[in-house]
Write a protein that binds this DNA or RNA. Sequence first.
RNA 1: GGCGGCAUAGCCAAGUGGUAAGGCAGGAGUCUGCAAAAUUCCCACCCCCGGUUCAAAUCCGGUGCCGCCUCCA
Length: 493
Amino acid sequence: MTLTLYNSLTRQKEIFQTLLPGQAKLYCCGVTVYDYCHLGHARTCLVWDVARRYLQWLGYGVEYIQNFTDIDDKILNRARAEGSSMEAVSEKFIAAYFEDMERLHIGKADAYPRATHALNGIKRLVAELEQKGVAYAAGGDVYYAVRKFPGYGKLSGRKLEDLQAGASGRVQETEEAKKQDAFDFALWKGAKPGEPAWGSPWGEGRPGWHIECSAMVRDRLGETIDIHMGGADLIFPHHENEIAQSEAATGKPLANYWLHNGMVMVDGEKMSKSLGNFTTIRELLDRGVDPMAVRLFILQTHYRKPIDFTQEAIEAATNGWQTLKESLLFGYEYGDRLGWQVPHLLPGATVQKSLGNDYTQEFAQAVNEDLNFTGGLVVLFELAKELRRDRNLMLHEGKTATSPEKLEEMWQTLVNLAQVLGFAVAATDLEPTAPESEQDTLSDVMIELAISQRQAARKAKNFAESDRIRQELQSQGIVIIDSPDGSTRWHRI
RNA sequence: GGCGGCAUAGCCAAGUGGUAAGGCAGGAGUCUGCAAAAUUCCCACCCCCGGUUCAAAUCCGGUGCCGCCUCCA
């Protein structure tokens, strides 16, 4: 079985082959840290983290780098508005980024380089491009001469003639005047008064947006990497420009595979800052939505397709996660009693390799088709439904219908696959619900007493009284279950 | 205008030439004093119109929608 990936560069699915056997070098374009991350960012970070996990599960050694853009006009604007500094703003939102991603159980990259820490590599690259004649200095700025790079447009499928110059209307006239060609883009921007600046051969200034990624990839991973990924909205111009910069400098391909995830949509429009239709990760989670439901919501659509963010979809995902969660809980709750090897607490970012049974093969068969996690989820649910059934039987009848050995294999497989997709039960799900306070809770003795009273009422066919006792216990968080043999079990919710 | 993508049940969604996975929601029955659980069963001719083929959800053209065309995850 081989993994195939849809390569944006060639616009077709290709068999995945690494540069070095068994080793994969991955770079994902991260975020500009000027605000809290929204669901769109969550999708990108989550999907590519899962891709990384999947490669690890297949047995690859993976090196995964994701950057922070911490030099940018938007950060600067925010700093001005708040009367703080660019550094303070980025520090704040980098910290927030890590909080949010951790809540979503998104594994950490191996490194998070920042533009402000990559200045040497950036300046070296700009100088090389200038030497090679594909970049030129102009009035304190340095621009990339797009027409000097024959492959320009190969990623996005654009021809320079087809582009509408300045279509965004965001390019300033002063900048426009310095460019030799309207499509040229800035590698280095001369400092304006009051802006953070770094010394360089071209004068005080700061790097343009695209150059940091080219520099970081080379510094951290080398001239050619296996996979470069990011949101589909970065294809043009960001990734196109990265290719132009890196490949003009090294003469080698920047990445062998270019992968892009689809956008999160709201009412038929892309979720974005500029449209103002975004929901931040923390807003959503603080609203009480389970982070794992968010994960299911995202993974339930193939990574390249757009996803509609709706209340209904989140609710459906919440219910779906409930099924997976109960099944994952099964082993932790009953594993010891059933004589299983129960792993010590919960899966961190470390992914175990594939267990190599029929289930995992079915999973791999689906996911090997261009990271079809959505298809792979079928296997998880197949296992989860079966496990949940036996968990319920255990809970209600004190025994399982399937052999403990078979159940253990299924459960271990489910845990293994859940790990790949990043699903994990929270530690709090494992602990019995802590009583609010001693006074609020009924003691076991009290419960047993109430139940025996109810038993007596049932025997006397006084069902009104019997149901009243059930109601009362239920309101205290106690569920009681009558067995066919006449006995009654109970448990706390 | 250019480039790319998507159209499958009430909702979400997989499927990439041989008569439709899965999730959510819903319905009917068995069992049960009730409840819970279990259990059986039901719920799509794949937007539409042409074309290619012995055969198409799957390929081609039309159509509609979305993204990108120098802020973008």
